[in-house]
Structures are given as structure tokens and as C-alpha cells.
Computed example of a mutant assay.
Amino acid sequence: MNDIAGKCNNNDESAYREEVRHLTVWCANNNLALNTKKTKELIVDFRKTKGCTHTPIHINGTEVERVTSFRFLGVHISEDLSWILNTSTLVKKAHQRLFFLRRLKKIHMSPLILENFYRCTIESILTSCITVWYGIGLGPKSTAEGASKWDTCAVVGNSGILTNSNCGKMINSALLSGEKGVQCNLPPLDEGYGKNVGIKTDLVTENPTILIHKYGSLMARRRPFVERLHSYGNSMLLLHPFSFGFSTPLCMRAAYSIEDLESPILPVFCNPEYLQNLTLFWRSQGLRAPRPSTGLFMVSLALEHCANIHLYGFWPFSNHPHGLYALSHHYYDDVKPSSFHTMPVEFDILLRLHSQGVLRLHLEDFRPGEKYFPDPGSPPLFDDMD
């Protein structure tokens, strides 16, 4: 199997075509025959203006077929360099094996056998070539100096403490400076909320239950869901298709809806093994809930990728820490959390990290003239509380 990668500058394809000619000559000189019927050409073109047409490649007088995607060493590569096709193919193949796992469980096979069957026949599929496709676009971009982390990240929760906080400018300032921002669980950024929570983000999360309660599991009209994503621009949408059995078809429908309705947002899938290990880690730190909340999950990602972390909207209590006046649970509604998460315990963990200088937990309203991001040596903003 041979592959040729050629770069075209200013619509000049001569270097690329010369590489193809060299390969043809080399094969002929070494008594090798190229099978033109199995040869494919894939064009990756991210130019905003695609006015010119690409002349087909010919090998030994035969035109090479041009495709929008192809399978290379088990990985599906598409012309837009997204991993939707590859991931959906893996999920579909793994989903077929779940039938046999259910049958084994139904006849009361031991947990050890069930685990071995899962790892051998299902997990091996889901993690196939995972070092190639998992995390593409999530990790920090390396620089010429070899930096491995982003400098500053703003993680924005949905607590009612953000109501009338005027923190939007503070949050947007980091993103306008080229840093990273995270919003949790498809929060509204328009409708007047932007002045309190910002209007820009690089990564937004989605809880599968939101698709059930707000969008009818995407079984009918899907346009309202995709239109909801417009306020997030071309950010990434983090989905959890492997957390529970019901979430797999939900998240796949979400990814297909984004693709079919041509939304600029990029869906990415969370590795289930990472989520499992993360749960075990926070359990060792005193969290007894079945699973961390989305907020704590995103803070964990930020701890891995960001040198300086600022948290907004992480306050799980019903009264403001300064004025003690009543707060809604979210800045956009007052729907109470389920008992699945233990928010006060998570807040205690975040407060400890704040006290240790690992991150900065913002619980104050923004005041004009205030410095957006205090120097690392300055007193924690939380310490101003009574």
C-alpha cells in the first residue's frame, strides 16, 4: 500500500503531479504494477474560495477516481478531516457486538467473563487506532518553543451566581487574547445573557439528558437543536456516547444532525475509559457520587491542558455569598439538580484547589476598572468573602 501527500500552492499542482509521476516510474523500474482501479485521490481544501477545478490525475493513461473519503489502515479519513465517519463506523460495529454481551449477562455469566468479552470484542473496536483519531483538535497546539499547555482557560458553569454579575467582559477578554473558554451543557449565550457569561467559547458540553428533555431525543424535528448551536460558532461540542447504553444512539443522532444540517460546530466524543478513570480519581479525593458533574469534568480537562484556570458560575448554593439574597439554581432557570451528583462536595474540592493556588474560583461580580485576571501572587478573590 502506497500513499502520496502533495501540497498545492497558488493553484499550482505541478509538484504534486510530479510526485505521482515519480511513483509511477519507480514502480515500473522495480517490476511493480500500480492497480489504478484501487487507487483513490482525496483532496483536502480549506480555502474559503474554491473557484478553480482540479484536473483528474492519470496513471498510465487511466483516470484515478476521486473520493470524499477512504479507509486507510483501518481509519476512515474524510476530505474535511473530521472524524464523524470514522467514529460512527466504529460505534455501529461495536453496537452489533452488544447483543452478545446482553445474552451473556442474561444467562448470568460471571462479571469477569463479561468484562473479558467486552474488552476483547467491543472495547478493542472502540479503541481501534485511537492514538490517531482520539483527541484531535482537543489538545493544545504546540508552538515553536515546544509549549505543551495553553496559558489561560476560562471554565464557565451555569450557576445562578452569574445573574447580573457582568462577568461577560472578563470571560471574553481571555478568549479575545487567544486563550481557551469552556461552556457547560448547552447554556444560552444570547437572549441578553452574554453580558454575564460571555458570548465566545472554544468547547461546549452536552449532557445526553438535555437531548431527551429539551429536544425529544432528536426523534422528530432536529433543526431546533442545530439552530441552538449557532451561538457557539465553530467551537467543539463534547458528547458522551459511551457513558450509558441509552446515550449512544442519542449522541450519534446529534452528530448526524450537525452533519446533515451543515452546522459549523465540531462534535467530538469522550473516551469512556478516561471518564471511568476520572471517576475513580475524584472518588479517591472524597467524592462519593456515582459520577462527577459536567462542571467538575471540564475542570479536570482544564487542569490537564491549561497553566492558569479561572472558574465562573461554580456556586451550588441558593443564596449569594456576598449579599445573601436568593439565587436561582441556573442563571437561565431554576431547575434543581438530580441526586446523581453531590454539588456541595464538588464545590469543597474546588475551594481546596483554589486555596492551594491550583486555580482561581471567581465568586465576585465584575466592577468597571477591575483587573480581569489578577497576578498569580495576589490574594484569592474568594478570600474577600465574609
Rank of each mutant, 00 (worst) to 15 (best):
L250F: 03
C251E: 03
M252A: 03
M252F: 00
R253S: 12
R253C: 04
A254V: 04
I258H: 05
E259L: 12
E259F: 11
D260N: 08
L261P: 02
E262V: 11
E262M: 12
P264A: 07
L266A: 10
L266G: 01
V268I: 15
F269K: 07
C270L: 14
N271I: 03
E273S: 13
Y274K: 08
L275Y: 11
L275A: 15
Q276L: 14
Q276T: 11
L278T: 11
T279A: 06
F281K: 13
W282N: 03
Q285D: 05
L287F: 02
R288C: 10
P290Y: 02
P290C: 06
R291N: 10
R291E: 10
P292Q: 09
P292M: 11
T294H: 02
G295V: 06
L296H: 00
M298S: 07
L303E: 10
L303W: 05
H305F: 13
A307D: 11
A307M: 09
I309E: 01
Y312L: 01
F314T: 06
F314I: 06
W315Q: 02
W315G: 03
P316F: 01
F317A: 04
F317M: 09
N319L: 08
N319E: 12
P321W: 06
P321M: 08
G323S: 15
L324H: 15
L324F: 13
Y325N: 11
A326V: 13
A326R: 15
L327A: 02
S328A: 12
H329Q: 12
H330P: 04
H330C: 06
Y331N: 07
Y332M: 04
D333Q: 03
K336I: 02
P337M: 09
P337G: 09
P337C: 10
S338E: 11
F340P: 01
H341A: 06
H341I: 08
H341P: 03
M343Y: 15
M343N: 05
P344T: 03
P344S: 06
V345T: 14
V345F: 05
E346C: 05
E346G: 05
F347H: 14
F347T: 01
I349L: 15
I349N: 02
L350D: 04
L350G: 02
L350N: 06
H354C: 14
S355Y: 09
Q356G: 00
Q356Y: 08
G357L: 05
L359M: 04
L359R: 05
R360P: 00
R360K: 09
L361R: 00
L361D: 00
L361H: 01
E364D: 15
D365A: 09
F366R: 12
F366P: 03
R367S: 10
G369F: 08
G369M: 07
G369A: 09
G369N: 07
G369V: 08
E370G: 06
E370K: 08
K371L: 14
K371N: 08
Y372D: 11
Y372G: 10
Y372H: 14
F373N: 05
F373L: 15
F373G: 01
P374H: 05
P374K: 02
D375W: 04
D375G: 14
P376L: 05
